[in-house]
Simulated scan of single mutants.
Amino acid sequence: MASAGSPKSAAAKKRRPRDSLSRAVIIAAAEKIAERDGLEGLTFGALGKELNAHSTSIYRHFRDKDDLVLELIDGLRAKSYGGDLVSTGDWREDLRLIARLIHEHYLRYAGLAMQMAARTTRRPTEFHNVEFALDALRRAGLDDDEAVVTTRVFGNFVRAASALEASLQVLPEQTRMMDELAWTVEYRRLPAEEYPNIARLADKLLPLGDPRLFTHAVEMLLDAIAARAEAKQSDQSDD
């Protein structure tokens, strides 16, 4: 039997009481690990070490790692903008709002952005996002079929573009600098006879991370949504 002063005995004394764990406590520790080590490093073993608890005790609160990850992703959304997604009454402004909030969220958690973008959490913040977008698109004048397709198109674009921009932020500084420099140096050196359009516009080319790109793309989508709604209404009036 281990003596009172042995390392094993000391570790046992420090072990967190079983009933002191909760979903909120576990999620807080999971966020800390994920931001430090990525979702790959978020294991129940790592959580147990972070919480000073036996890893098996986490199964009392989460079915498996994926259950935990989905809860974490939805929780981070709520933490970023959960109370800010309130309708303005203008469908364009509402879609601008949700696009901006999601974009800022992905940049805030840049190291997790690519993995978050691909997941469907089926949890409250996601449900609210979808309801908010559908309501805006119905007010834009889209019918049900157009609204559900456009909700997916708009959401996929916002997440993909935001995740791409976030992924640039987490590149090694030297790599990111060289990529950005290419647009202002290497493109300008291309021969005009082979690349006439690039040569003519080289001084105007924008790097991938230019913040104007996201805003411009959102406005293009809003214009396309309005045009489709008008075309649909025109078709109906002609019938």
Rank of each mutant, 00 (worst) to 15 (best):
S3I: 04
A10C: 00
A11Y: 08
L21V: 01
R23E: 14
A29R: 06
D37K: 15
L39K: 08
E40S: 12
E40T: 11
T43A: 03
E50N: 01
Y59F: 15
R63C: 00
D67E: 13
L70A: 15
S80W: 10
S80K: 04
V86H: 07
D94T: 06
L95D: 03
L97I: 02
I98G: 02
I102E: 11
M114N: 03
R119H: 07
R122K: 06
R123W: 11
E126C: 03
F127H: 13
H128R: 10
A140W: 05
A140V: 05
G141W: 13
D143E: 10
D144W: 08
T150Q: 04
R152Q: 14
R152K: 10
V153K: 03
F154Q: 00
F157R: 00
R159G: 01
S167T: 01
E173P: 00
Q174A: 15
Q174I: 07
M177W: 07
M178Y: 09
D179M: 14
W183G: 00
E186D: 04
R188P: 01
R189D: 04
A199D: 10
A202F: 06
L205P: 04
L206R: 15
P211W: 10
M220V: 11
A226Y: 00
A229M: 13
E230K: 15
S234I: 10
D235R: 12
